[in-house]
Design a protein around this nucleic acid. Sequence first.
RNA 1: CGGGGCGUAGCUCAGCCUGGUAGAGCGCCUGGUUUGGGUCCAGGAGGUCGCAUGUUCGAAUCAUGUCGCCCCGACCA
Length: 515
Amino acid sequence: MAKRASDNKDGICSRSQDYSQWYLDIIKRAELAEHSAVRGCMVIRPHGYTIWEKMQRELDDRFKATGHVNAYFPLFIPLSFLEREEQHAAGFAKECAVVTHHRLMSQDGRVVVDPESALEEPLIVRPTSETIIWNQYRNWIQSYRDLPLLINQWANVVRWEMRTRLFLRTAEFLWQEGHTAHASEAEAREETTRMLEVYADFAERVMAVPVVKGAKTPGERFAGALDTLTIEGMMQDGRALQMGTSHYLGQNFAKAADVTFLNRDNELEYVYATSWGVSTRLVGALIMSHSDDTGLILPPKLAPIHVVVVPIYRDEDQRQATVSAAHALAEQLRPAGLTVRVDDREGMQPGAKYYEWELKGVPLRLEIGPRDLEQGTVALVRRFLADEQGLDEAAIRKARKAFMPRDQAVAAIPGILEAMQGELLERARRMRSARSRVIDDLDDFGRFFADEGGGFAWVHWAGDADDEDAMARRFETSIRCIPMQDHIPEAARGTGTCIFTGKPSSQRVVMAKAY
RNA sequence: CGGGGCGUAGCUCAGCCUGGUAGAGCGCCUGGUUUGGGUCCAGGAGGUCGCAUGUUCGAAUCAUGUCGCCCCGACCA
């Protein structure tokens, strides 16, 4: 790829120049992930994987707190299982990896598939696990006393995508999939909503990404679901990203796998199901929500390293003194549960270290030099300001840095990280409001997306699937969700007229260009 | 699957048009120097030029084929 004029010294394209390239540059330079030898599959590097691990921990705690337990089901699914639920099968048919043989052999110095080893029945690498899990649930559920069954699985899945993007869409990805069974529709629907709330809470409190909660239109529903709920985030380029889904599956999978139970009245009934999931796509959402042209910006709750300490020195005596003071500082901070890295690499100038850690998204940096040793102080530098609007680079840099007594810094840091977590969410909220518009006119709608950068358009809608397609072809937008009632901003409430068909509409939907 | 682009050192690329046996910057290693925002100097390691076939005395360079990857579209979390 040709060098771009707007690349900074770390080889990061600016967001304004090419958002998509910026995204790829951040991932590469911050060492989050890279392309592998296998088309469409990525290698998640330690820095990126640590972020995922932190997400997993937070989510898993929330799943446990809502009564779920973890289990593990096979990677391979018999082909026939997928046939059982018609819509489900159709939904995934075009993107399945199929295992047909179980043995290799040597032939003229090459390794080839042994044609004699064909499987009697091909195995599908799971694109999702509903079918194999429900096949097992059949044996676990007999009575209403066995319900609800609340199980989650952390796993990898494969969807043979034609076009992939690191984290956002890869052929193999990591995720969690919750699969629950209930004795009534009401209870299953409640579970569907509860888990969407868990996702929304996680997105906002942990990822610092505000989301719109809502339902998908029939065309955007999960294959086999009666209802799909979603959380939709807005990325810095104004595009929507589906960050998590929770499905009410009704009795579709119970019927397909013949999972029945005896209710209190001793009647045989099919159980009611839900499934819900989030994936490593969330790492992509995190990057696109907060980071800047300098590099990654991470909410403290997901940062692999909270504080980096950089010693500054001129001679050997100073080196020993400041490095030792840096380690002492780190030890003071660690009891607070913080991950602290002392960067005592030699032969590297402090400035070079600053750039590197900012690129990697470390929220706080402590600089400790000879002057600090004399005065008992330390320089505390934040990765970003609560509001950087209207400030030039020099002003921002100055405002981010403060000298203070060391003990004061140690005492203040947990609170500062907490504050930064909140500021990120606020920044993201401000960005989203600035790019959200209540629109009633199709021309305005077109201008919003063509000339004004686009974002979330709150429009009245009463169209059908064909109308939705027509909108998509004309504006490249889609209905991201039909927002939950309690989730609609003041200005977007009430009834009105469909922006496309002119029919009466009971509420507005969120339209946007999507990833 | 359609459109575009690219495969030369770890990375970014030049060299190709007009064939003569491979370069730069960054990174890496050694030594010195420097160190409160990316120091500088010297020395050094590192490449079957994606692969195959052909043309030629000679191919990174020309031809044909092939593989792979990236970007844009249709599909999707």
